[in-house]
Write a protein that binds this DNA or RNA. Structure first.
Lengths: 195, 195, 195, 195
DNA sequence: GATGAATGAGTCTTCATTCAT
DNA sequence: AATGAATGAAGACTCATTCAT
């Protein structure tokens, strides 16, 4: 009984979260009404509230879950030992993000940007995103240290500072893609060549 | 009479826009109610509507005006010919932005991030931000070309691509500052050293 | 089989009614939700509806049953022939009611007062309470007549009017206890001394 | 400007409170919806909320105000020095209350009883009612002491205990009137004759 | 026979906007 | 020109009740 119920519960939650992502992508987090998500998810209002306490809980869950999806998306890149250096790593990550712009009905970038806005005045969201980005940067630093050990990257700079720039470039690329529409990640390596 | 009225009108509008910035910074664009801005500005409800058609017009105006303020903030950097290269330029811009984090009662970074979110589903906002960022990048490219001419920056990379990375680094730094709280712009030059 | 079922049914109903009493005492009749009673009773939603048609039926049953409990509580007093007169009778009843204020997890007084409120706009409740109180007063009148026959109580007053005052004093005492918290029933005899 | 506004405000509040009384009398406090009161008052939903923070505030205000009305109703009786003793005082109060049963569209007794119910789980209501009843009993005690000084009432009983019984009789009479419908206050003196 | 997930109607409350004064 | 009271539409959320399993 607990197993069936548990699985059912998780499936329903996922169904709701994906509906929320689509709505957030379409109209913005705050402008999305519960009714929108309810309609998009195909459930009834009260069913919705069985799975998420209130709107804020749903928002936090949706943004948190989107980070999980993003993490899964980027995992292969961290597993790829063939990447030769920081510039290529930044590019690869940017490319991967760009590739998933609109695949399953929602744009992970748009949701990420909405999340940053939400984090400005929602401590739960901020904590979730902050934790994810800090961890992400740490993983970048691990790669950088390996390159430093291999002599590919100079030891003059601290690994974490280099990782910080890699992350900044990727985050900035996301903003540029969402606002300016310049989504060619290849510009990154080429541009970094000039530094 | 029209002139006085005009000046008075602009002063009032500025007063309202700054009230809006403070509110947006405090609680987010969408979550801010007209009543909030009315109270913060010290005007009456109907006075407010004399100066801005409706809430959306006010949002667009506020975000657009914040870009103007940002432009003014960064102008001195473009005028400073002593900056030796791309990494230092990115750093200087980031430092300048960081310096104005909370000076006049509102955080320009938070408003910028809110603006990005708004731009996802508001064409006027997107157009305003997009135009500003494109122009910003163009001005960066002008600097880069000067460096290339002077032989400080290699010609292997296109100036616009380099400018693009400079901008990405700055935008990413803004996100990092707002989310992670790592606001030391000095990390940027040091990190770029490792590329 | 019908007999066992019948007994089982009654036991279940009693279990539900007591859960209802606790909830009503805690939060008021109308503010109590079915979910509250269901949780308190330990049954499932549908089980609940097997035993009571709907919420109103449950309310009526709960209040009616509380009157039965009250009647049982007061029976010994009617059986006690040693009570010397009206003032003492009123006091004894008040004392008995006070003694059961919170014994089994709910305050019969609070439920009684809620019942009066409910009776204002629920005819079934009104009929139940009205019948109970009328009968209660009649039984008081029987005692009064006995005292009159014995010469302890003057015949100048009609027995039913005296009974009416006895009842009023008791009901008033309940209100005073519930609102003012003055629950010393001894004040009644002492106070009546001054009339 | 403050004067007009203030007067207007009070008039509106009174208008709303009377609408609330009529609704509470008709359907009970908790069962009354804001929509009911809004319709009864002739205002719009939002106008309503300009004058009372939320439903609970309105309930508290309505019950508190009903006590004020009751106090005004009973004032003449306290001013009447011709009342000869406790029994007559109780009767006079009961008569006065009965006389105003349905005069202005609502039954003050029903509202009082609802108030008692509400006081069981709303501390503000309890405090208001408790204070009013305590004060009421004190004023009765003042009269009793005068009678004791005049030798009309024996000194064997404490004035406050006698006042307590007077109050109990009146409160009980209200319940009897509301539930049993026996609204002849004359029964009180006659019945007290038998004690 | 029992469960608990689901529902739809309804509740309280808020908000951008207008209009009489 | 300015005020602030008023509005109607809509939003988040709840609840008594049912029904597939």
């Amino acid at each position: 009984m607990p197993k069936v119920s548990q699985a059912h519960r998780q499936m329903r939650q996922q169904q709701i979260l994906e509906a929320a992502w689509r709505c957030f992508d379409r109209g913005g987090v705050q402008a999305t009404t519960m009714q929108d998500i309810i309609a998009e998810s195909g459930l009834s209002a009260s069913a919705m509230y069985r799975y998420f306490e209130d709107k804020e809980a749903l928002i936090v869950a949706a943004i948190t879950a989107s980070l999980g999806a993003l993490g899964k998306l980027l995992q292969p890149i961290f597993d790829d030992v063939a990447i030769p250096g920081p510039a290529e790593l930044a590019t690869r990550i940017a490319q991967r993000v760009d590739a998933f712009v609109a695949s399953p009905g929602y744009d992970l970038r748009a949701i990420a940007i909405q999340g940053w806005g939400e984090a400005q005045h929602n401590d739960d969201v901020r904590a979730a995103i902050s934790g994810f980005y800090a961890g992400f940067r740490d993983r970048l630093a691990v790669r950088v240290r390996a390159w430093q050990k291999a002599g590919v990257v100079p030891r003059s700079a601290r690994a974490l500072d280099i990782a910080n720039v890699i992350q900044a470039v990727v985050l900035g690329h996301v903003v540029q893609g969402a606002i300016l529409g310049d989504v060619d990640a290849g510009r990154i390596v080429r541009g970094l060549d000039g530094f």
